Computed example of a mutant assay.
Amino acid sequence: MKFLQKYILFPKRFGFYPYFWLIWIIFPITSLWPFDTAHKLVTAGLLAIFIWVYRNGYSVTKSLPIWIYGQYLLCVILTVTDAWVYLTLFTAWEIGSLPISKPKFRQYLIGYYVTLGACLLWLAIQVQSNFFSWESSSGVGGGIVMILFELFSPLAAKSISNSYRRREELRAQNSRYADVIKRGERERIARDLHDTLGQSFSTITIKAELASKLLEKKPEQVASELKKLQQPRETTCNWFGKL
């Protein structure tokens, strides 16, 4: 299990989100099947490396630049070999989701746009030379929508990530406020309890001393004083009952 968590599964703090994007790997895999040529086998190997690098990119460590720029390099290679420019979307949503500083995000964002620009330029050259048929995909309109989606994906991912992070911080802050309020209430009750018990015990002590003196001089008044002695205790019990 530790091996899976360390080398295979995504970090738990990202939840199901990274696995959702892996669903789209089905499309390039189905385009390669069956793996009956050397080109398809090599491409499948590169795709497997891309998935592995993509997974490691969610582990925010000192090696993060290797995993991010490794994805950029593989995106360029697979765009040149198979026109898979949409693989850049994996990295786009990844860099937008990572808990990294703004300078780091800008650095990876610039790298992303350079990579995307290089991939789109290559495809434009191939379309111009009729190596790839633009009409055979989703047409000019679909291509423009796809390009716009790729351009704004990292910014959208960053916005969603920041919104989720602010919501979590607000929830944690409210939890801290609730703890402070509870602690303050407990301290107030403890002070009230201390004052009430102190006053009750003082009254009991005084009346007990008075009763002991009356026992020698006026025994007939002792019963009356003992009844008065019960009043602070009853008051204290009532106060406890309200708590």
Rank of each mutant, 00 (worst) to 15 (best):
R186P: 00
T235V: 10
V42F: 14
A223S: 13
P103K: 06
L155R: 01
R186E: 15
T30M: 12
T205P: 00
S200W: 03
F50R: 04
V60L: 02
A92M: 03
R188H: 12
C75G: 05
P99M: 05
I51V: 15
P154M: 07
Y54W: 15
Q230E: 10
R176V: 12
T115M: 04
K6N: 13
K102S: 07
T235C: 04
G70H: 01
L87S: 06
C237V: 14
E220S: 14
L46S: 07
R171Q: 13
G96W: 09
F14K: 01
F20C: 11
D195M: 05
Y54R: 01
E135W: 02
K2S: 12
G111S: 03
K242V: 14
Y58C: 07
F3H: 05
R106I: 08
S137Y: 15
Q126S: 08
A48Y: 03
I206R: 10
K182I: 07
G45R: 03
I77E: 01
W239M: 06
Y113Q: 02
G142L: 09
V76P: 00
R55H: 09
T236D: 00
L9M: 07
V145I: 15
E225T: 14
E234L: 13
A44E: 05
G141Q: 09
I49F: 14
E135N: 12
G57M: 04
I26Y: 12
Y108R: 07
R13L: 05
T81P: 00
P219D: 05
F149A: 15
V114Q: 01
F35L: 15
I68V: 15
Y19L: 10
A211V: 09
P99Y: 04
P11C: 06
S163M: 10
I125M: 08
R183I: 06
A172C: 00
I49K: 02
A178K: 14
I100S: 01
A178F: 05
W24S: 14
I8T: 01
K104I: 01
S101K: 12
L64K: 03
L229R: 01
Y177T: 03
T91C: 08
Y113K: 02
I51F: 08
L87D: 01
I144R: 04
I29W: 11
S101E: 08
S224W: 10
I147L: 11
N56A: 08
L229A: 08
